[in-house]
Design a protein around this nucleic acid. Structure first.
Lengths: 131, 131
DNA sequence: CGGTATCCCTAAGGATACTG
DNA sequence: CAGTATCCTTAGGGATACCG
């Protein structure tokens, strides 16, 4: 069974729960939450990218971390990887249908945060001043 | 100015951009993305919690990490903290209006991932088998 | 109850070098 | 171009103990 519940009990609910310690959805949420995964998904939400183009788009990421992040996302079924064996080789990354849905929601979150920058900055200043 | 753009240029856009290295929105997205922050926000989306109740809801979190996480979220203006000085003391945590908006979007992401568990599990099995 | 302080260890992740 | 491999440093985060 691929589902999971949060509380052990006599009549377990057979639905996934991000609060459940070993649930796939909780793991996936963590995979998506890392800074590089977030940005990679947002970038791929704009369209397909080749490795180094994606690396330029996600400013500050190292080759190692981008590669590692993409492997995780591919394993989770969020990103597809297509190799075109030319010389020099080219590898095209894109979102799967599920990846598109994830990226869309991530975009809404990013939009909200971008709009809220003044509010967040004010909150931080107030908090730091109060200390 | 509390906004930020991603590309330096002669006519900088005065809008926030999560891709920009030093942008507040990028930092905030990271703060929200950590596993404990995600779960704390999702929990508080269900209603207010006292410290230890929240700790029970977010299974697996240590006192230290929950405390640290809540401080970060409070500083970002996503969570409010109210102390009622009784004996024993009680501290009530809740979402701010901005926190509510963030939590709502996080919930949509979590719902999607919970629904997609079978799909993700299948993708992982396929990926691992292919290695 | 609701934390903070300390110790300690693992793992994230950057820099660099090398390969198909 | 698109990575992998190695090294090395830092910081995330658990365990424990203690305080208002």
């Amino acid at each position: 069974m691929s589902t999971c519940d949060s509380e052990p009990g006599p009549s377990p609910e057979l639905v996934a729960d991000v609060f459940a310690r070993g649930c796939t959805s909780r793991r996936t949420l963590e995979d998506i939450g890392t800074k590089w995964a977030q940005l990679a998904l947002l970038a791929l939400g704009e369209g397909g990218y080749r490795f180094n183009a994606l690396r330029r788009r996600v400013a500050g990421v190292s080759e190692k971390m981008l590669s590692q992040t993409l492997q995780t996302l591919e394993r989770d079924g969020l990103v597809s990887r297509e190799v075109v064996s030319t010389i020099p080789p080219r590898v095209e990354y894109a979102l799967t249908p599920l990846g598109e849905e994830v990226a869309r929601r991530l975009r809404e979150l990013a939009d909200l945060l971008e709009r809220s920058v003044p509010l967040v900055d004010a909150a931080r200043n107030a908090y730091d001043a109060r200390a």
